[in-house]
Design a protein around this nucleic acid. Sequence first.
DNA 1: GACTAATTGACAGCATACTGACATAATAGT
DNA 2: ACTATTATGTCAGTATGCTGTCAATTAGTC
Lengths: 163, 163
Amino acid sequence: MQDDLPQRSALNDLMRECFRLNRSLLDVSQRLTEGTPLTGAQWGVLTAIASGHGDEEPGTVAETARRMGLARQSVQRVTDVLAANGLVEYLPNPGDKRAKSVAVTPAGRAWLTELEQRQLAWVSDLVGQHSGAEIDTALQLIKEVRARISRQIAEDRLDELSA
Amino acid sequence: MQDDLPQRSALNDLMRECFRLNRSLLDVSQRLTEGTPLTGAQWGVLTAIASGHGDEEPGTVAETARRMGLARQSVQRVTDVLAANGLVEYLPNPGDKRAKSVAVTPAGRAWLTELEQRQLAWVSDLVGQHSGAEIDTALQLIKEVRARISRQIAEDRLDELSA
DNA sequence: GACTAATTGACAGCATACTGACATAATAGT
DNA sequence: ACTATTATGTCAGTATGCTGTCAATTAGTC
């Protein structure tokens, strides 16, 4: 395949590597949550729930889903499991009869801090000799690539509507 | 949370962003395969099958799985679908009575070149003003982070064995 | 106040990837 | 040559995400 565009192959590699990194990260989150009542996905959702409210009142499932960029239903399913395991609690929401509030229980909060410890240790072990600036540079590039993709997708959606 | 380690938060962001990029990429592969008989995952597997044999003979499912870093069973399922849709063919393997050889059919090859075109167009549209060097730098960092994670995981596996 | 949007939860179904367990075939070690 | 280990395919079950649909609630508009 001729390569008029040297960036093409580079970006291709970047994408492939990103897929692999993603799988590695999933692996890690699974390992970090070993011995806890949480899975990787549950950890993520629980974190999102806990860090959701700068305000006093706990948020709803739909809010959490929006913040995570996931489908409502996915987060709902996980949250139900969290509730069943006592890490989270559904509270009646005076403001909306449908959307119950989701509050992290003391048990949930305890596991969160435990996992934060583990993650801190893991990251410390991982960063190696890379400087913060170096990481930031890569982060910026990825962020922009992703943003451009999102924009592309959004435009495509509009195209479809007008088609 | 106190931040003794400035890289911690940066790396954390990098991970989060990688998750999001991953989902965006899945989205894109879904879009690129729209109107073809392939899904994103099937495209990936088909590509791996096609690019597998520098040698003459087509490879087996297990080989493809290893090359992709996926579980045997996952690739098997997808390959079965490809075969059912006539994009791939199982051939008797004289060397191994269990593992049939997998060959890409002309139809499969045709869709592969079509998708290669689409991908090329997409990437050209995407690279924007980033230089190849810039992308390479990010790629190197991610590669190394992932490699270190893999090493970590491998060590953990050994620890478990010796424990 | 009544009608229409949009939001939300609940349920069902699909795609992708994983693990575990099993039988069979191939390979190594003795 | 016989046995033990490994490789492979197959079947079953799980986790995580998605979409689509429906009824109920909420919010917005006239």
